[in-house]
Amino acid sequence: MLKHFGKYLLFMGSLVVRGESPRILFNRTIDEAILIGINSIMIVAIVSTFIGAVTCVQVSYNLTSALIPRSTIGFMVREMTILELAPTITSIVLAGKVGSNIAGGLGTMQITEQVDALEVMGINSASYLVLPKILASLFVFPMLVILAMFLSIAGGYVAGTATGALTAQEYITGIRDAFVPYNIVFALIKSVVFAFLISSLSSFRGYYTSGGALEVGAAGTTAVTNSVIAVLIADYVCAELLL
C-alpha cells in the first residue's frame, strides 16, 4: 500500500519533468477535453435528470406535514443536488466512464509497445500521454457538474409538477429560497478534487500495466474501484474542511 503510494507520487513527479512544448501540451489537452466531454455528456445528463426527479419524489413522499410549505421540496432538491448529488454522483459515474477509458487506453498502449515507441523518440511518455488527460479532466469535470446541477433541478421540476406533488410556482419559490452561493463554489472545488483523483489514479493504473489483454481488463477494474473509493473519502474530507 505504502509502496504503491510512493510509486504514485513518483509517477506524478515524472509528469512535470521534461515535458513537451506548451503548444503540444495545449493541443493535446484540448483533444482530450473534447473526448472526455463528448463521451460523458449523455450519461451525465441522463443520470442527473433522474437523480433530481427521484430526489423530488422521495422528499415529497416524506413531507406529509401540513405545517411545512410545499416549496420546501424545491429547496431540498436544490440543497441535496448542488451540495452532494451533482458533484459526487456525477464523479462516480465519470470514474466508471472516464477512469476505465483512461486505464484501458494507457494499458493497451503499454502492452502493445506504443509507450516504448514514444520513449524511443525521446518523448517523456508519461507527461505526453497523462498530463493532458489530467488537465482536461480538471477543466471538463466542473462543467459537467454544472450541467448536472441544472438538469437535476430541472428533473425535480418535471417530476414534482407531473406527479402533482407541488405547483411550478411552489417549486421555483423553493429553489430560490435562502440560496447560498458558496455551496456552488464548494461543489466546484469538490469536482476539481475528484477530477484530479480519478484521472491521476486511473492513469497510474493504466500506465503501469504489464502483460496482456487480461491485465488491461484488470487495470480498468482496479482503476474504477480505486477512483470510487478515493472520491468517497475525498468527499468526506472536503465536507469536514470546507463546510
Binding site: T112, E113, Q114, D116, A117, V120, G122
Partner: peptide
C-alpha cells in the same frame, strides 16, 4: 534513434 518494434507498435 529510429526504431521498428517487433510488434510494429503503431499508434492505433
Amino acid at each position: 534513434i529510429g526504431m521498428l518494434f517487433q510488434s510494429s507498435a503503431l499508434f492505433d
